[in-house]
């Protein structure tokens, strides 16, 4: 079974925000909601690296585990989706998500955040594939069209890879072997719950 994953290759990412606007464009995400964002570490000094991050579609997803209304579900491809009709906008998923993926359309005074929105791996939501209702709530369902996420497809340097975990990992591995250098990939370990270079093991709650 395919397991959809993102990898962002920090050796390539140039913080061009192409992925971010591709997402806005394809999914008509409004101002203030950033399903994807780019973070730069060591900004402005040698060793500077940028990483594009959205939902990692975790195998053991904390968001899913804490959602009080159980509105998350996981597709066959391992994509973590949610149902906005059910979501109550409590914000728990955003507290739990290690990556800050869940977004809310409003600021949340009196807890009024609106319905949570997050990266869908361009796989829409529970509505019928490709329906207007699905588009309005979740954006485009590219997976159903046989296409990969807009952000990765448009990434200016192909730093951001998306697709079946094995394939993506292979591509990345080829690059790494070619470079003969480090193997650290953004989110890989965390998303798979495995050890990441230089980090502690992610205990999980198994």
């Amino acid at each position: 079974m395919a397991r959809m994953k993102f990898i962002c290759d920090s050796e390539r990412c140039i913080e061009c925000n192409g992925c971010v606007t591709a997402c806005k464009n394809e999914n008509e995400v409004p101002w203030g909601v950033n399903r994807r964002r780019v973070v730069t570490l060591n900004d402005g000094v040698p060793g500077e690296r940028s990483i594009s991050v959205a939902c990692m579609h975790c195998s053991d997803a904390p968001c899913m585990a804490v959602c009080p209304v159980q509105c998350f579900y996981r597709t066959e491809e391992g994509v973590v989706l949610h149902d906005k009709d059910v979501c109550i906008g409590c914000g728990y998923c955003s507290y739990a998500c290690p990556f800050g993926a869940p977004q809310f359309p409003s600021q949340g005074t009196f807890g009024a955040r609106g319905k949570m929105d997050k990266c869908t791996f361009c796989a829409g939501g529970p509505e019928a594939n490709g329906s207007q209702a699905e588009f309005e709530k979740y954006g485009r369902n590219r997976l159903a069209e046989g296409k990969l996420p807009a952000c990765a497809e448009m990434c200016s340097t192909k730093a951001l890879l998306a697709g079946d975990g094995d394939v993506v990992a292979d591509i990345f591995r080829t690059r790494v072997v070619q470079r003969g250098k480090g193997a650290e990939v953004w989110g890989w370990g965390t998303a798979y719950g495995s050890r990441q270079a230089g980090t502690q093991t992610n205990g999980g709650s198994k």
């Binding site: 470079r179 003969g180 480090g182 990441q196 230089g198 980090t199 502690q200």
Partner: peptide, 12 residues
């Protein structure tokens, strides 16, 4: 070059 372990340590 290319070994970003210190950066990942920062990240985590």
């Amino acid at each position: 070059p290319g070994n970003n372990a210190p950066m990942w340590r920062q990240v985590s």
